[in-house]
Design a protein around this nucleic acid. Structure first.
Length: 395
DNA sequence: ACTCCACAGGAATTGAGGGGTG
DNA sequence: CACCCCTCAATTCCTGTGGAGT
């Protein structure tokens, strides 16, 4: 018998449940779209574009809505008089401010002419960008910087770009649309950047259960065969995701996972049992993926806390963790980092939600310190560490 | 009211690794 | 070749913190 066979008793087109899938119609974001239209109106009229800052949690339709509205804008411009708009889209994930500029420059250059991502001075690459902007034919350029928060604290670009029309760039009117899912990012910007980047702000709220239900209805029609969904599947997926994140991606993940469980077991329909199981798997999967993606040093820190946890010590301070860490690092022959570095790892891990931190102050006896404990189930951490060959031997 | 512990966490520096120009 | 730029992790140095104990 063949190992692989085509066909499914559940899915028609499972891609319709994926994040990257673009549905024909955008639903449940009417309010945000209207705000977008208002913010883009100056561009249509030929004025300098207003800079727009879009924010909201992951999976609430920011990127999709932006794509829809800019597609419409590009399509409609044939009716505009004397206005030609060019849209350049860049995902800033894993890029620094400097690298972002070089990538923007390369958007305007032929492949053979592209500049390398390092080596020039800051001012040089900025000048290259202004030159490109001054020489293109279009009257307007809209830059969309998706996941703009990953540029980090260096806000030179976010300062320069929104005001390049003031002196460096005269031939083209430039607008910036920043998309971010980090609410703290806006606050972390300096005041001068905030005022220019955030001329218009559009906040995408999390979806509620009703909205998620309609989104799932939209997608499931295409994704599943006939009537494999039991009546309560869509409401249940929506409710679970709405409670937890309000993210459409989350709801779609649960529904997809429920579908694959049913397919694996050759069941003829998806039931609420599949959904409950799927929701658990999705949650666990997210945590495990993130844990596995951490570097070895962070794994060692987690290992140290896990060991202490197994010895019944739940709330441990930095020094105890460091001693166990040091021992573990020695045994697998890896670099032993300084306490300050481990301290950074610890705060990183607690920021990501893997560790719970309690501030303690014992005055003269102990001074002020933090107590760390695991904030996810020990079994999940253990499973994730098992996946790393270097760490596995220590368990 | 003041001291003092044991750290927290910011700032500056270093060093290795990516690359550029003339 | 000499000299320059950007990046990132790691390190050193240093100041800040706040309540139990005096």
């Amino acid at each position: 018998m063949a190992r692989f066979a085509q066909g499914s008793n559940i899915f028609d087109n499972e891609d319709a449940l994926r994040d990257s899938y673009t549905p024909d119609e955008l639903i449940e974001r009417d309010e945000e779209i209207r705000t977008y239209e208002t913010a883009l109106q100056p561009t249509v009229n030929g004025a300098r574009p207003r800079n727009i800052f879009v924010y909201g949690e992951t999976g609430v339709g920011k990127t999709l809505a932006t794509r829809f509205i800019l597609n419409d804008l590009e399509a409609d411009q044939e009716y505009f008089d004397g206005v030609s708009i060019r849209v350049e889209w860049l995902n800033c994930k894993d890029l620094t401010s400097y690298q972002t500029v070089t990538q923007l420059v390369n958007k305007f250059r032929e492949p053979l002419n592209e500049i390398s991502p390092s080596g020039y001075g800051r001012g040089t690459v900025n000048r290259m960008l202004w030159d490109e902007l001054n020489t293109i034919d279009d009257t307007h350029v809209l830059f969309v910087l998706d996941e703009v928060d990953s540029i980090g604290s260096d806000d030179d670009l976010l300062y320069q770009l929104p005001r390049c029309n003031d002196n460096q760039v005269t031939a083209t009117k430039v607008g910036l649309i920043g998309i971010s899912n980090d609410f703290t990012f806006r606050e972390s910007l300096s005041a001068r950047v905030q005022s220019s980047l955030c001329e218009h702000e559009i906040h995408f709220k999390p979806y509620d259960a009703n909205q998620l239900r309609r989104i799932l209805e939209q997608r499931s029609g295409e994704a599943f065969l006939g009537d494999v969904l039991s009546g309560d599947v869509i409401p249940l997926c929506s409710a679970l995701a709405a409670q937890d994140t309000g993210s459409a991606r989350h709801a779609l993940d649960i529904m997809y996972k429920a579908g694959s469980l049913a397919r694996e077991r050759e069941d003829t329909a998806i039931t609420s049992d599949h959904v409950h199981e799927a929701a658990e798997l999705v949650e666990r999967g997210v945590i495990e993926d993130e844990l596995q993606a951490l570097p070895t040093q962070s794994h060692l820190v987690l290992l140290a806390i896990l060991k202490l946890h197994e010895n019944g010590e739940d709330a441990v301070r930095r020094k105890e963790i460091y001693d166990v860490y040091e021992d573990a690092a020695k045994r697998i022959n890896t670099d032993i980092k300084s306490p300050r570095t481990i301290h950074n790892r610890l705060s990183q891990l607690s920021l990501k939600g893997f560790l719970a931190v309690t501030e303690c102050n014992e005055g003269v006896k102990g001074g002020k310190h933090y107590d760390y404990s695991l904030d996810v189930r020990a079994k999940i951490v253990e499973d994730a560490l098992c996946e790393s060959q270097r760490i596995e031997v220590l368990l």
